[in-house]
Design a protein around this nucleic acid. Sequence first.
DNA 1: GTTTGTGAAATAGTTCACAGCA
DNA 2: TGCTGTGAACTATTTCACAAAC
Lengths: 211, 211
Amino acid sequence: MERQIPEVVVSRLPMYVRGLTELHKDGIDFINSKDLGYRFGMSSDQIRKDLSYFGKFGRQGRGYNVALLLDELRQILGLDRQWLMAIVGVGRLGRAILDYRGFIPRGFKIVAAFDKDSDVIGERVSGVVIQDMAELEIGVIEKKVDIAIVAVPSTEAQEVINKLVRSGIKSILNYAPICANAPEGVRLESIDPVLALQSMTYYLAKNRDYR
Amino acid sequence: MERQIPEVVVSRLPMYVRGLTELHKDGIDFINSKDLGYRFGMSSDQIRKDLSYFGKFGRQGRGYNVALLLDELRQILGLDRQWLMAIVGVGRLGRAILDYRGFIPRGFKIVAAFDKDSDVIGERVSGVVIQDMAELEIGVIEKKVDIAIVAVPSTEAQEVINKLVRSGIKSILNYAPICANAPEGVRLESIDPVLALQSMTYYLAKNRDYR
DNA sequence: GTTTGTGAAATAGTTCACAGCA
DNA sequence: TGCTGTGAACTATTTCACAAAC
């Protein structure tokens, strides 16, 4: 059995991929952990430690080959293939997500959309035909969906998540502003700008001197 | 001098506020840490420990008064006032953010918008007139902006962040998919669905058995 | 009886510091 | 010399467990 890798380490890998991609574009071939750390605002030790969970990618006295490390990390994260996604909820928010141009170039493709509103079922949005929510379970299997995006109103979000779980979906990206729950074995991440803002205000409120 | 509160504790408070708000709406007056923990998928110990950094809000044998605790937490987080925000970048993404209905009911109001494209300057979007990026520094002071939202293309994002920092902004919510940096004393949070997806794929790729 | 608040213990995560390699 | 990879030391965070309050 393989050594268990801390979640926090895995969560930092995408940032490394992003930084290395920028360096690669800029034509930089080698970089050391100190410069990487400076770039990410973290210690060089941490970067070396993180990478050491997965292998030895560096060269003493030289640093890391950018292209090589990038390739390794992309493989570790499973970014060397395309991932298929479904979106549930095609209202204002759902449409904005379907419109988002950042997914495709990074290997994420929305191939199915579901809504319960009969007025929009059958409509084509960003190349995807909206299906009836009732077809969710069959739809995600037929379209081989890996990841589901939840963009329904708060009141319906947990119910939709439960339905997705029953459909066998193992990864859910939730945009509804609720305390969402998923069982063990299902990865659920929430995107919630308001939560981010609400912890920033703690620090703003504490340091009233800035005004 | 006050005891220093761990960032991770502060970052959980907004979730507590959200959960308690739901309970309050449902007409529940008292709740104990065990039930709260169940709701958030965490231990009751952790909730009690987190709250204990700020005071004693519970009653032994009874639990917490929902309305009271909610009020305390909102005050601690500075959610008992309205916060003014500016958005920089009014393209596809910026417009979607300006359109977002979730800010106002939680006390966050976008009062200024900036863009460098002369075609959109002067246009009114969601009640805000788009100003020239050149007026950024004056604009955020005039409008008493507390928090800035960055929604410009990746290539310009760091430059915009630097400009905001120079304007005296202490809190920035960044939507551009870059490795953003801000100096000590400026709080910078990034909203990035792709980063969230890219760590989920690690676990999906590891457990191929689900298909 | 129930549940909080909290030191103490345990666990997780980060930083140190240095041997070893280029 | 310069820099990685990594145990050891340290720090942060979580969990335990129980006295005190209701």
